[in-house]
C-alpha cells in the first residue's frame, strides 16, 4: 500500500507539469484580449495598447512565457494580475474564505441531505417519498442555477425583503455580524444545495438499489436480522463506497467556486474571480486558479482511489 501511494505521488508530479503546459497553451492560444474594454476608445490607440501588452509581458511568444511561468511558480511567485497589477496569490487568499464559507457549507449540507434521502428513496422504492424526491432532484438539475437564483431573489429578497441581494464582505464580529452573515449566505447556499443534493441523491439511491438486491442482503434477512439493521449496517456501508468516492472527487470543485451563483449574489469567491478573469483575459489569474484546481483534482483522485481500496477489500492495488 505504501509503495502504491509513493508510486502514485511520483506519477503525479509529471502529470501536474503536463496539465500546466496544456492549460497554459490553451489560455495563450484562446482568443481574447485583456484590453478589449478599450478597443473603441480613440484616446487609447493601438500603440498605447501595444505598450501596455508589452509591459505585461505579452509581447513574448507563449512557450517562452510558459518557461518563465514555471520557473517563477517554482520559486513561489505566481505572477501579477493584469487587472490589479498586483500579485495573483494575494487575490486568491482574499477570495478563499468566502468560497469556503458559501460553497463548502452548501456541499456539506448537500451531503447530509442527500444520503438519508437516497437511502429512504431506495428502501421505499417507488413510494410517495421516492417520487417526490425524484421530482425535486430533477428540478434541481434540469433548471440552471441562475434560474433558481433569480426566482429566490425575486421571492425572498425583492418581494419579502427577508434576505439581501448584495453579499457584503463583512467582518463578522459579534452576534449581529454573525446573524448578518447567515442572512446573506442563506440564498446562495440554498441555490447550491438544491443543485448538489439532486445529483448526490440520485447516485446514493442507485447505489443502494444495486446492493439491496444482492445475496448477502437476503442472507442477512434470512438470519432473522431486523430490516433496519440490515439496511443500516450491511447495505449502507457497501453502498456508500461509490458515493464516498464521488464526494471526495467533488471536493476540488468547492475550490473552483460556484461561478454562476457567486456572480449572481455578488459573493466575492474564487468562482466569481475566475469568471471575471476569464472575461477580461486576465490570464495569470485564470492560470493560477485552474492550476491550483488541477493539483487538487489530482490529489483528491489519489485519495479517492486509496479510500476505495480501504473501504472495499475486494479492490487490489497492483
Amino acid at each position: 500500500m505504501t509503495q502504491y501511494i509513493l508510486r502514485r505521488v511520483l506519477i503525479a508530479i509529471p502529470t501536474i507539469l503536463v496539465i500546466s503546459f496544456v492549460i497554459f497553451a490553451i489560455l495563450a492560444l484562446a482568443p481574447g484580449d485583456p484590453l478589449a474594454q478599450f478597443a473603441l476608445n480613440p484616446a487609447i490607440p493601438e500603440s498605447t495598447r501595444e505598450r501596455i501588452r508589452a509591459s505585461l509581458g505579452l509581447d513574448q511568444p507563449w512557450p517562452v512565457r510558459y518557461v518563465k511561468w514555471v520557473s517563477s511558480v517554482s520559486r513561489g511567485d505566481w505572477g501579477i494580475s493584469f487587472n490589479t497589477k498586483a500579485p495573483v496569490l494575494d487575490l486568491v487568499w482574499q477570495r478563499l474564505p468566502q468560497t469556503l464559507q458559501v460553497v463548502g457549507l452548501a456541499y456539506l449540507i448537500a451531503i447530509l441531505l442527500a444520503i438519508p434521502i437516497g437511502i429512504i428513496s431506495a428502501v421505499k422504492q417507488y413510494s410517495f417519498f421516492d417520487q417526490i424526491g425524484t421530482i425535486f432532484s430533477f428540478i434541481g438539475f434540469s433548471v440552471p442555477s441562475f434560474f433558481t437564483g433569480l426566482v429566490l431573489i425575486l421571492l425572498f429578497a425583492v418581494n419579502l425583503k427577508w434576505f439581501p441581494i448584495v453579499y457584503k464582505t463583512v467582518d463578522g464580529s459579534g452576534w449581529a455580524g454573525f446573524g448578518e452573515q447567515i442572512r446573506q449566505m442563506f440564498l446562495p447556499v440554498t441555490v447550491l444545495v438544491v443543485q448538489q443534493t439532486a445529483a448526490l441523491t440520485r447516485f446514493m439511491r442507485s447505489s443502494m438499489l444495486d446492493n439491496l438486491s444482492l445475496d448477502y442482503v437476503r442472507t442477512a434477512r434470512a438470519k432473522g436480522l431486523k430490516d433496519q439493521t440490515v439496511v443500516l449496517r450491511h447495505v449502507l456501508s457497501n453502498s456508500l463506497i461509490p458515493v464516498v468516492t464521488l464526494v471526495a472527487l467533488g471536493i476540488p470543485t468547492i475550490f473552483a467556486g460556484a461561478i454562476v451563483t457567486e456572480n449572481l449574489f455578488r459573493v466575492n469567491g474564487l468562482g466569481a474571480l475566475l469568471i471575471t478573469s476569464i472575461q477580461n483575459s486576465d490570464t495569470p489569474v485564470v492560470m493560477a486558479l485552474t492550476f491550483i484546481f488541477a493539483i487538487l483534482t489530482v490529489i483528491f483522485n489519489l485519495i479517492a482511489d486509496i479510500m476505495y481500496g480501504l473501504l472495499d477489500p475486494r479492490v487490489r492495488f497492483s
Binding site: 482568443p31 481574447g32 484580449d33 484590453l35 478589449a36 478597443a39 472575461q279 483575459s281
Partner: peptide, 18 residues
C-alpha cells in the same frame, strides 16, 4: 460574437470588429 473577441485586438482572429 463574444465581446472579448469582437472588441479584442487579436489580429489572428477573424471575428474582430477591426
Amino acid at each position: 460574437i463574444d465581446a472579448g473577441v469582437f472588441f479584442g485586438g487579436d489580429t489572428g482572429n477573424p471575428d474582430t470588429l477591426n
